[in-house]
């Protein structure tokens, strides 16, 4: 049954997509900022994994930590020094700001790393899983498992930690949170840092699936958009549902309509959902 294989491919991809979107969704939901930089952050994570593996022999699954940490620092810095200055300005301003930053960072990466697509080839792949009719490289399954684990950890962090509660408070009501003693600027920076961290981690995991190039940033950003709209905004479970849904939709779309139509399908879906179910498939409205 080819459909089982397609479904399995979709779910494995979807787990990684969830990780892509979780950070994007967090930033959008809490800060009301669309982070155009997100795609470039993901690619940067991939490069960190690539160089760590090629020069230091560090496995991408370990690089998740270094890439996450580095991107957190970058994200924290970008928010506290730049975006916080215009956080109260109209949507257009923050959008344009992150767009400008993306042009800057992406172009610098193009100059530094060149545009050609590079592949991270593992020396000792884990082999593959055969489950009846389904074949799946174990590395991919492990990457998906790690992606979902990371997404779950983010969820726990938001729910159970002090910082997480403060982030939720800011999301619900910025003013009330500041009156209750939450340092909103600092929480903004931490939130954006966490978003970037998730992007870096996702990038590192994606390095074993996708070829790596700065030109891919737009594709990742597009996926993050679609997933957020599919799953509803600002919630981690929404990102997981949206990610898995997109993964499955893309896999089936590829065999039914051809892989070249993946973008058309997902963006058509995005427009239709925005028109008919603006709160996402889960039906919960996030933050506008």
């Amino acid at each position: 049954m080819i459909y089982f294989q397609v479904l399995a491919n979709g779910l494995v991809l979807g787990g990684l997509y969830a990780c892509i979107a979780a950070g994007f969704s967090l930033v959008w939901g809490v800060l009301n900022v669309i982070n155009i930089l997100h795609g470039t952050f993901i690619v940067l994570g991939s490069y960190i994994a690539l160089f760590s593996y090629n020069f230091l022999g560090i496995h991408p699954f370990i690089s998740v930590i270094t890439a996450g940490a580095l991107l957190y620092l970058i994200g924290h810095l970008v928010q506290s020094s730049l975006i916080n200055r215009v956080i109260a300005a109209p949507v257009l301003m923050t959008l344009t700001l992150t767009f400008g930053l993306d042009l800057l960072l992406n172009n610098l990466m193009l100059v530094a790393f060149k545009a050609d697509y590079r592949k991270l080839v593992l020396d000792n792949p884990l082999g593959r899983l055969e489950l009846g009719p389904i074949f799946m490289p174990l590395d991919r399954i492990a990457a998906m498992g790690l992606a979902l684990l990371l997404t779950f950890l983010l969820h726990r962090l938001l729910r159970d930690s002090r910082i997480g509660r403060a982030i939720i408070a800011v999301r619900m009501d910025r003013e009330a949170a500041s009156l209750m003693g939450v340092n909103v600027s600092r929480i903004n920076a931490i939130t954006f840092g966490l978003g970037a961290m998730m992007a870096g981690a996702a990038g590192s995991l994606l390095s074993i699936v996708y070829p790596i190039s700065p030109l891919n940033s737009g594709m990742f950003l597009g996926k993050a958009f679609v997933i957020c709209v599919l799953g509803g905004l600002g919630s981690v479970p929404g990102a997981i549902v949206g990610g898995l849904a997109l993964g499955v939709i893309e896999s089936f779309g590829a065999i039914w309509f051809g892989p070249e139509h993946a973008v058309t399908i997902s963006f058509t879906l995005l427009i239709l959902i925005l028109i008919f179910r603006p709160a996402g498939l889960m039906g919960k409205r996030g933050f506008e």
Binding site: W28, N32, I34, V91, L95, G222, F225, V229, H261, V263, T264, F267, T268, L270, I271, L274, I275, P278, E288
Partner: peptide
């Protein structure tokens, strides 16, 4: 269809129109 969306939602929907039309 899309002008009842506000802020970012409108921005993204209008962006998606470009992607779809190009394809």
């Amino acid at each position: 269809a899309i002008l009842h969306l506000k802020g970012h939602y409108f921005a993204i929907a209008s962006l998606a129109v470009v992607e779809v039309l190009r394809e």
